[in-house]
Design a protein around this nucleic acid. Structure first.
Lengths: 334, 334
DNA sequence: CCTATAAATGTAATCGATTGCACCACTTTG
DNA sequence: CAAAGTGGTGCAATCGATTACATTTATAGG
């Protein structure tokens, strides 16, 4: 195709290419001439030919634990926003669904379909992780939101421990002493961090988190709902429940409501994330806000920087601040 | 790279290529030999070289009105699931954010970064739509969920009118006569379809939808919340409100609750979509379920078929069934 | 034993752009 | 006025695979 343009403009393909990619390397008039022809014929460079020659894809892969989980949408949007500014495309893949072709995410890197990888999944299979830290790929990977414990790869994350400190201090400040915790899925780094944050903050207040006051096991609505009956069967009952996610909290409130209990009169409930529906829960959910959009942007930013200079970003960890959002789901104990 | 493998295996690059892509075109032993070398050296084909030569990208672009809107996540997952089975990659772009590079989605097609396009946005700018129906792109485009009125492109959609008929028949069957409607954003095809569905179904029951009983103007939680006070200021009040989305319904319930009204005792509320949190709303939301996962899969399926045979799929419209899900947000009027 | 046919492999053109190097036409400088 | 420098172009190699066509080798049929 570039040949056609060259022929029509009466110049060489080299000149067309330069007029398009390095406008300052051709004369004013040649550029205008070439641009005119390009315009008239609606010519567009073939990205494969370019990628093949330049040895870069112009695309980045985002690996999501579950594409169907709405929690990730804002992070993805943040990533896409930043990438679009840089003129880089976004590929997405689900790290759990391994379809017919069954290509590992690393294959995208090795087949040079993507220049880099942003993983929102911190619990990648050991084999995948091993591939990722190989010399030829380690400089192309960053983590967002979650991160792997076993490899010191660059990552962007929210300040999960601080978030839980804010949550604990809030409910303890209201006068609660028996605080229960709804935790996330086992083996997840966020689960560990947040739980550790809760325990540390409670300890700092002279309180403890006995194992029987921990329930959940999943970030989902279902898990929260199911936990209600178990939590309320305890004697004495916990007076406040801190949840590892807003979904857990909303599910829990739903479960409590089914038991005829109301929030915050009978129990205080706190979430984590500040998802879009948190302000519209009944009651509006007191929670810890993490800025998912900013997190996505920062991750994309970090990856772009890493691709430009792997050494400079070696092991870099960016921790984003979180914020206590006071709404109506917490109150002093009865 | 393929040259290295060829040299190491003592065969030509042609044979390596065939061993990899057309195993039946080489002898058993050659294949084993080549595979062995490939395995040992972790060789992977370069996708650009392949794409350049084969003139296909092996990727498809999904265009989403707002990547941050969780409503789309399940559709995207459906698309990705199906594409992965076919060994095709998924690129995503936000049709609203036009970042620095500001490349139109059509550019992806023209630059052959993507073989096809699935648009979840039915309200594309006229210029974009015009580009899409050009002879060289029209065979590569399908719509999912939404669709453009002005061009007869293939699409997959839910049966929006039938859904609203089910909703209307349900509340009217409970005895409601003054039914209000919370509508979506102006200019959106779903807004039009659903409203038309409501009006037709009410008319069939001998009822009407006076303009003052229509509010909303957006699918969002906020719009639903804001509508509550206006709707309840009417005399006589509507006894049931049908919403164009679950988000509207949940926002509405939140707004009603702030006014001290409860659902369904004071007002019945219906949603549309059956999003993940609908069962955990207070009260659990009666709604119309559309299977977003199936919709995404079907759209990906349709696109793959269209890419293989554009003529056969010309103007094809697939309408997926919807379903009434009875929960607790509707009851007979007081 | 020789020819026709099939199976396996190699040769080299091709996909479409980018870019190092060479070259030409002018300026500038000593 | 000759030598050196500069800006603008063109030539052709290159990126890494795929595949039409040619060639070789093995097998079957007459």
């Amino acid at each position: 195709m570039i040949k056609d343009i060259a022929r029509l403009a009466g110049v060489s393909t080299a000149t067309v290419s330069r007029a398009l990619s390095h406008p300052d390397r051709v004369s004013e008039e040649t550029r205008a001439l070439v641009m005119g022809v390009v315009e008239r014929h609606g010519y567009r460079v073939n990205s494969f030919a370019r990628s093949l020659r330049k040895q870069r894809a112009g695309a980045v892969l985002a690996l999501v634990p579950n594409l169907g989980n709405p929690f990730f949408s804002l992070i993805i949007k943040g990533i896409q926003d930043r990438l679009q500014e840089a003129g880089v495309d976004l590929l997405v893949a689900d790290s759990h669904s391994t379809g017919g072709a069954g290509r590992s995410p690393v294959a995208h890197l090795r087949e040079s379909r993507a220049d880099g990888l942003i993983s929102l999944d911190g619990s990648l299979p050991a084999a995948t992780l091993k591939d990722l830290v190989a010399p030829d790929t380690v400089g192309k990977v960053v983590f967002a939101c979650e991160w792997p414990l076993s490899a010191p790869l660059p990552s962007v994350r929210s300040d999960n421990r601080e978030g839980m400190r804010l949550a604990v201090d809030h409910v303890v400040g209201l006068g609660h002493r028996r605080v229960a915790y709804l935790t996330g899925p086992a083996g997840n780094i966020l689960t560990d961090e947040r739980r550790a944050g809760v325990e540390a903050a409670l300890a700092a207040q002279g309180l403890s988190l006995p194992p029987e006051r921990v329930d959940g096991g999943d970030f989902s609505l279902e898990a929260g709902h199911a936990a209600a009956v178990r939590l309320m069967a305890m004697t004495p009952r916990p007076t406040a429940v801190i949840c590892a996610s807003d979904q857990l909290a909303i599910g829990l409130i739903s479960g409590l409501s089914a038991l005829g209990l109301s929030v915050p009169q009978d129990v205080s409930v706190m979430g984590f994330d500040d998802i879009a529906s948190a302000p519209y829960a009944l009651p509006p959910l007191t929670t810890i806000r993490q800025d998912r959009l900013a997190l996505g942007r920062a991750a994309a930013d970090l990856l772009l920087e890493r691709l430009a200079d792997p050494a400079a970003t070696e092991g870099r960890v960016l921790t984003l601040p979180v914020e206590l959002v006071l709404r109506r789901s917490t109150a002093a104990p009865a």
